[in-house]
Lab assay of single mutants.
Amino acid sequence: DETGKFLVLALYDYQEKSPREVTMKKGDILTLLNSTNKDWWKVEVNGRQGFVPAAYVKFL
């Protein structure tokens, strides 16, 4: 149950560059965990948590 969690859509592919980031593919649906930083949002994708560039995702 994803109640209270926001979902975001990956607009572009992103390859993680550090262990704190996660890789996503364009079209992936991600669970948004934290968006307090304007540049990097914490998400969960494929069972992994990490950061992606905020400009690469949008709210569903």
Rank of each mutant, 00 (worst) to 15 (best):
N46H: 11
A54F: 03
K17P: 04
R20M: 13
Q15D: 14
A10N: 01
V22Y: 03
G4H: 15
Q49G: 06
K38P: 15
E16M: 13
I29T: 07
R20K: 13
P53Q: 02
E16R: 13
D28N: 06
V8Q: 01
A10T: 03
W40L: 03
D28E: 10
V57D: 00
D39S: 11
V52R: 00
N37H: 13
G47E: 06
L11W: 05
T23V: 03
D39V: 14
R48D: 04
V43K: 00
V57C: 10
L9D: 01
L7V: 09
N37I: 06
F51K: 02
M24I: 15
G27S: 03
E21F: 06
G50P: 00
W41N: 01
G50Y: 02
K58L: 12
L30R: 00
D1I: 14
K38S: 12
T31G: 06
P19T: 10
D28R: 02
E21T: 08
V45G: 07
S18A: 09
K38E: 11
F51N: 03
S18N: 12
G27T: 02
L33C: 06
E16P: 15
P53C: 03
E44V: 08
D28H: 04
T23S: 15
W40V: 03
V45C: 10
G27D: 06
V52C: 03
K26N: 04
Q49T: 13
E2G: 14
E2F: 06
A54L: 02
L11Q: 06
F51S: 03
E21D: 06
T36N: 13
K5D: 08
R48Q: 08
P53R: 03
L32S: 02
V22A: 05
R20Y: 14
Y14L: 01
L30F: 05
G27I: 01
G4K: 14
G50E: 01
D1H: 15
E2Y: 05
T23C: 05
V57T: 04
A55F: 09
D1N: 14
D13E: 06
R20L: 15
K17G: 09
D39R: 12
V45Q: 10
F51L: 09
Q49A: 12
V43M: 02
N46F: 07
E21C: 06
P19S: 12
G47L: 04
A55C: 12
D1G: 14
V22L: 15
E21L: 05
A54W: 02
K26D: 02
T31L: 15
W40T: 02
D39I: 15
E44G: 06
V43W: 00
N37L: 09
K42G: 05
E2W: 04
S35A: 15
G27M: 03
Y56C: 08
L32H: 02
G27C: 06
G50I: 03
S35E: 06
L33S: 02
Q49N: 08
K5V: 11
T23A: 07
G50T: 02
M24K: 00
P19L: 09
S18Q: 08
F59C: 13
R20C: 13
K25V: 10
T31W: 11
L60S: 06
Y12A: 11
G4S: 13
V45N: 11
G47W: 03
L7E: 07
F51M: 08
V45D: 03
M24A: 02
A54S: 13
L7N: 07
L9C: 09
K17R: 12
D39T: 14
I29P: 02
N37K: 06
K25S: 10
K5E: 10
Q15R: 10
R20A: 14
N37A: 09
G4C: 14
K58H: 10
V43S: 00
L60Q: 07
K42R: 12
L60C: 10
I29V: 12
L33Q: 03
P53N: 02
W40R: 03
F59P: 13
T3S: 14
L33V: 12
Y14Q: 01
D28G: 03
D28P: 00
V45S: 12
V45L: 15
V43L: 03
S35H: 10
K17V: 09
K25A: 09
V45E: 03
F59Y: 12
L32K: 01
V52E: 00
G47Y: 05
D13K: 02
D39H: 15
T3C: 13
A55E: 11
K25L: 08
